[in-house]
Amino acid sequence: MTLIECLVAMALVVVAAAIMSSAVRDGLAAQEDALALTLGGTAAESRVAEYLAKPYASIAAADATENVGAMTTPQGGAFSESYSRFGRRTIVSERSLTVPDFPGLSIPGYLIQVTVSDLWDGTERKIVALQRFRPRTIEDEIAAAAAGTP
């Protein structure tokens, strides 16, 4: 084997290793995205769960943004380190739902919209968007009547 052949073979090995490494890097980036989706989903679910769990009378229309790394749990604590790259926006608005098969029926409640974002190459990237409707139930109305609030 000549020196030239040897060098060509080595160059091929390097190229193959570089391609392999690049494939792994891409796979890792895809996993990173999947993990971000999972974690972002749980952060959004956490906020939705908070609004579904809190007393109806304590809910008010709101538009609040938690910056990246500043999210807080429903209990007021900090999220763990894994969540430090996420930020979250919560929009709560009064909404009435109508049911197509029941004309005249309108269900009052709040629409809760939660968006979780992270920073990707310095720009904000939306990862997860969730929305749920919290209806005003008969129990909520009884509680409001007992408390003397409309």
Partner: peptide, 21 residues
């Protein structure tokens, strides 16, 4: 957190799950 050791040290992934009743 899920924790695994690949021989070079522990790798961890934190998770927080919450649901309303």
């Amino acid at each position: 957190a899920f924790v695994a050791d690949d021989g070079t040290g522990p790798l961890r992934s934190d998770l927080r799950v919450e649901s309303a009743l």
